[in-house]
Design a protein around this nucleic acid. Structure first.
Lengths: 230, 230
DNA sequence: AGCAATGAAATCGTATACGATCCAGTGTCG
DNA sequence: CGACACTGGATCGTATACGATTTCATTGCT
């Protein structure tokens, strides 16, 4: 056991000050959900996680509670935890909410966006357009996040920004995005990105920016619904 | 101790099936924060809570984690948990976010609102107007919540609705509302309520409803900021 | 063959125990 | 007289232990 050794005084160890075990467990699971290696429905066994992380189940439980509160995992009493699945209805709710908060975050950012930011965003969008030919939903979604992140990451309201992150995290649970299902959507999405950047460059008022950004995401949702309904 | 008695088999107790201990603890603390009996900065000692609730600290810790994730509690490692205080900046963030989500929830509800709902809302608003004379911020805020709840509680998007509830919960931590600080605000707020009801009754489009509802809350925020800045 | 009851294994729920850390109050030394 | 080191109590962090619940496969009955 490590209990006998006095790690505190002489031994820097890793860095016990920065991360409690429950925090470690939280990040561990969150990363795996975001990266997609824990797909929807993936069964999380507390004792197994505790073994993997070399800790007891108590910190793991705390991490699970936090993730549960963020709707990333579903916890059923006496049964266990699974990564929250996204059925079409949940997808609708999540996308609608993301449209709301991301649109607002983008609008709040608009006055703070620098020309350099716009250049970076245009560059990312150029890469996206390039990839339209040989299409890979995975990297396309990755680029899509990077594009939008440039435009909302400086959001001055941390609560709103946090909600945006949570929305993206939930979407990350999907192995592939809407772009995989709805053929034409990717190309139109790239065009809408340019329109958004033009509006930002022109210094349009924040109400307009919000409307464009929200509508952009809702359009993806509607494309999915139309396709699924067919 | 209660450990000796076997309540599970023979004793129906309250209803052990519906609430785990960690859930009990969660509700317990949440209620006290909402009701204001745990004010901002209130120190939550885990072991004391565990004693009060007649359980061990483990479930209490899980409850705290959930509340922490909802920003209702601030938890510092090796130090303890306190009810999150709301300084002016936090107040701004919270109100801004609430304006966003509540406005949207109200708009999503607009098509579902029945004439009966509108009547109930008008009745509540009438009571609010009545109380303007001998003004009590506490009951006024209570009525204010009831008024808005009628208009957003049927929100078809549960994620958005949940965000609205969380926003109100955070505001509940304040012992009294903005109305206590900014004299003229209450009267104007009541008038805006009528305007909102008129728009709903007239069947205005959802974009208009959202704009009115959002602006209504932002106006309260701005009234506070102007007053504080003076 | 199909269905219901039974039992065992897996997993969760909670209590208890103990080490680690922080904070405050006290005393000593410059 | 003030600053610093020390010590004690309070509280948190985690591990371990054991009871409770669910689930699933097996068995027996119709």
């Amino acid at each position: 056991m490590t209990t006998t050794e006095k790690s505190t005084a002489t031994n820097p160890e890793k860095n016990p000050a920065t991360a409690s075990k429950s925090e470690t467990a939280y990040q561990y699971v969150l990363d795996r959900i975001r990266s997609g290696s824990y797909g929807p429905g993936y069964r999380l066994v507390l004792s197994r996680l505790a073994d993997e992380l070399d800790m007891s189940v108590v910190p793991v439980r705390e991490a699970i509670r936090r993730l549960e509160s963020e709707r990333l995992i579903t916890f059923e009493r006496n049964v266990g935890a699974t990564v929250t699945g996204i059925d079409p209805t949940e997808y609708l709710y999540t996308m609608q909410t993301l449209a709301l908060v991301e649109g607002y975050a983008t609008a709040l950012c608009a006055p703070l966006v620098t020309p350099a930011d716009l250049d970076r965003a245009r560059e990312v969008n150029r890469q996206m357009r390039e990839r339209l030919a040989d299409f890979d939903p995975r990297t396309f979604t990755e680029l899509n996040l990077r594009f939008h992140a440039i435009l909302f990451e400086n959001c001055p309201n941390p609560h709103v920004l946090d909600l945006v992150h949570r929305g993206w995290n939930r979407l990350g649970a999907l192995r592939s995005s809407t772009f995989a299902y709805v053929p034409g959507r990717a190309a139109r999405s790239v065009d809408e990105h340019d329109a958004l950047l033009d509006a930002l460059a022109a210094g349009d008022d924040v109400g307009t920016i919000e409307r464009i950004a929200r509508q952009h995401r809702l359009a993806t949702l509607e494309a999915y619904l139309a396709h699924a309904g067919t």
